[in-house]
Amino acid sequence: MSEPKPKQDEPIKRMLAPVRLEFTVSAGRDKTAFLGAIIEGRILGGRCPSCRKVYVPPRGCPTCGVEMVGDIPISDHGVVTTFCTVSIPFEGQTMKLPYVYASIVLDGADVPIFHLVDGIDAKDARMGLRVRADWRPPAERKPTMESIRAFVPTGEPDAAFDTYKEHL
């Protein structure tokens, strides 16, 4: 951080006031279980005992305010509900432009996760596209969503709008 030095005869008008704090953040119980399963190539959800909705990752039900019960295995196949096409470069990008970032409702879940869609030309991305997780090899998996390289088309027929319109 550098600041042009004020001239010695000019009044001070600004000062640097940096704040740097280091934390060790905890993923908590539910996300720890979820990310542990991701390393094993499994996706976990949780079912709200009140509204019966299945959340991925498992978490307290945000509409009912109650704890979820159990770890529900969720399919790694799903449907693209909505998406965007990224055409601008930014730092840390790993995908070749343009690429598709999508909201994906996995089979058995009631809320979407967000991930990359690959194996398809960006201009062919569409709502209703059936996709599956392309897992990295077990030795390369870490407790992050990057253990799924991307979602890729399954080749199945597109899902009908009525089957996922609730999740938009």
């Binding site: 951080m1 600041e3 009044p11 001070i12 008008k13 600004r14 000062m15 640097l16 006031a17 940096p18 704040v19 740097r20 704090l21 280091e22 934390f23 060790t24 953040v25 905890s26 993923a27 908590g28 119980r29 996300k31 720890t32 990310l35 542990g36 407790p143």
Partner: peptide, 26 residues
């Protein structure tokens, strides 16, 4: 054991000091 990760919060504030604080700092 819960998963943990290092995390840094850093703000590079440059504050306008106003006339009073400014005179003191000057």
């Amino acid at each position: 054991m819960a998963l943990t990760a290092p995390y840094v919060l850093e703000y590079t504030y440059r504050r306008s000091v106003g006339p009073v604080v400014g005179q003191f700092l000057t």
